[in-house]
Amino acid sequence: MSDNDKIKKVSIIISRGSLEGVYPGLIMANGARMEGIEANLFFTFFGLYGILKKYMNDLKIATVGNPSMRIPDAKGFSMPTLLGALPGMSAFATHMMNKEMEKIDIPPVGEFIEMISDAGGKIYACKATVDMFHLKDDDFCPQMDGVITVGEFYEQAAGSQIIFT
C-alpha cells in the first residue's frame, strides 16, 4: 500500500445513545489515532449522551427492538421482545457486556473519551441537538472541544473520510 492510499483522517458521527450505538464510534476513533490517523468525533441527537458527564458512564444496551439479542450469552436463545421490555433487562444485559469489555480492556465511556482526547482526537457536539435539548457547556465532559454547526463539522472534516454510526 503506497502512502497515497492510506487513510489520513476520519470524521466519525455518533448519532445513537445506546451503549452499542456509542462504542463502535469510540473504538474506531481510538483505533484511528493508534494508527497515526487523525480523528474527529461528532456527537449528534441521542449520541450526545456519550459526552454528557452526568450520563456518559450510564449508557445501556437496547434490549427492545434488537432482534440479534440472545440469552444468556451471544450464542444462546433468541430473546423474545416482550422479555426485553421487562424492568431491569437492559441493565442486566449492559452489566454482562460491561464485564466482557472490561476483560478485553475496553474502558468505560468516560475513560475512553479521555483516552481519545489525550491521543489528539477532537470531540464535538452538534449545535442543533444542544439547542433542542437545552444543554449548556457545563453539562459536557471537559474533553468536549466545542459545540459546532453541521457546516463547521464539514469544514473540520475537510480531507477526511466521513463515517456515520
Binding site: 475496553i106 483516552m115 489525550d118 491521543a119
Partner: peptide, 22 residues
C-alpha cells in the same frame, strides 16, 4: 493502551508524545 495506562502507569499523552503516529 489501557494496560499501559493502568498497569504500566504510562499516560496516553506521554505514549503519543514519545512514539508519535501509532
Amino acid at each position: 493502551m489501557r494496560r499501559m495506562n493502568k498497569v504500566g502507569g504510562i499516560p496516553t499523552k506521554e505514549l503519543y508524545a514519545l512514539f508519535p503516529d501509532g
